[in-house]
């Protein structure tokens, strides 16, 4: 008996320990980024261009670049994703087609982001001659976001009770009217939650934009789709690995990382909060 008791305490103790290690590590990690990043953060840092070969100045072009890359890619991926989800959930035939699409989506979701980068470079940059540009990067990121959005949208549609569909059809609505007027509006908050989570993910990606959109250093903001852009994640990487004055660059990297992390966390937090509210309020 006492041996079993001992094993019990030991086992539970180890589990608590693993949890504590995880928590401590993550706290150290987040505090470190906050502490180091906070010391360089200022309005000027946020809203001015980098200077003196990136050893001084701010990160405004990178923030703007990340904004456009993210906004464009989601704008491209969202309608595609919702339409795909509608077909899978609401028409769902023939089964072999749906099965193949599902396999394709799962495979796409598992492809490393660097391969998306290579694909974007081979197809958008070189084949379609879009060059290293905002549009090439946004297209690449859109493909990356697509599986996330499809899965979220399909899940959201699946949660809509079948009674709504029956009620609508029994009132003489067609399949299309039922989908567009009842199913999609009902699922929309959840679809958007998924889209916001995808935004958080896209905003932080580095590898897909390395060869498709990002430039190292520019003082000007993108004016058209064919301009190269700076982007926060790539900027952090560049500050850490390129250039000569690491003593001056590392603090700027921390500052950029803090901004990026706050952006990503805030976006995800908004999505999680919205979902929480939906679940609390939902009556069906």
């Amino acid at each position: 008996m006492s041996k079993r008791k001992l094993t019990n305490h030991l086992g539970i103790g180890i589990i608590i320990l693993t949890f504590l290690i995880t928590v401590v590590f993550l706290i150290v990690f987040i505090l470190r980024i906050f502490y180091k990043g906070y010391s360089v953060l200022s309005w000027e840092f946020l809203f001015s261009s980098p200077k003196e070969a990136m050893t001084a100045g701010g990160i405004y072009p990178a923030i703007v670049g990340t904004f456009w890359l993210t906004a464009l890619s989601i704008a491209l991926a969202l309608p595609m994703g919702i339409m795909t989800a509608i077909y899978l959930k609401c028409f769902g035939r023939p089964w072999w087609f749906v099965k193949t699409v599902r396999i394709a989506i799962n495979t796409l979701a598992g492809i490393p982001s660097i391969i998306y980068g290579l694909f974007g470079m081979a197809v958008f940059v070189n084949l379609l001659k879009l060059d290293v540009s905002l549009i090439s990067g946004a297209l690449t990121l859109a493909i990356l976001a697509l599986p996330v959005i499809i899965n979220a949208s399909e899940e959201a549609l699946r949660q809509v009770p079948n009674e709504f569909r029956e009620a609508s059809l029994a009132l003489g609505a067609t399949e299309r009217q039922t989908i567009l007027k009842v199913l999609v509006p009902t699922a929309l908050p959840n679809i958007l939650t998924g889209a916001i989570l995808a935004i958080g993910r896209v905003a932080g990606e580095t590898a897909p934009i390395m060869f498709t959109a990002a430039t190292f250093y520019t003082r000007i903001l993108p004016k058209s789709l064919s301009d190269e852009v700076m982007a926060l994640p790539y900027h952090i990487y560049a500050l850490m690995t390129e250039g000569t004055n690491s003593a001056k660059q590392v603090p700027i990297a921390y500052g950029s990382a803090l901004v990026l992390m706050i952006l990503a966390l805030a976006i995800s937090a908004i999505a999680i909060y919205i979902r929480f509210q939906i679940r609390k309020k939902r009556k069906w």
Binding site: P79, M83, I105, L108, F119, I143, T174
Partner: peptide
């Protein structure tokens, strides 16, 4: 309109397969 709607969403789903193939073909090529 019903048919058009179905065709449009079908095409969108088809696109995921095309994409996957595109990625595979481009890295192999």
């Amino acid at each position: 309109k019903e048919k058009l709607f179905k065709v449009v969403t079908y095409t969108a789903s088809m696109f995921t397969i095309v994409l996957l193939f595109g990625i595979i073909v481009s890295i192999f090529r």
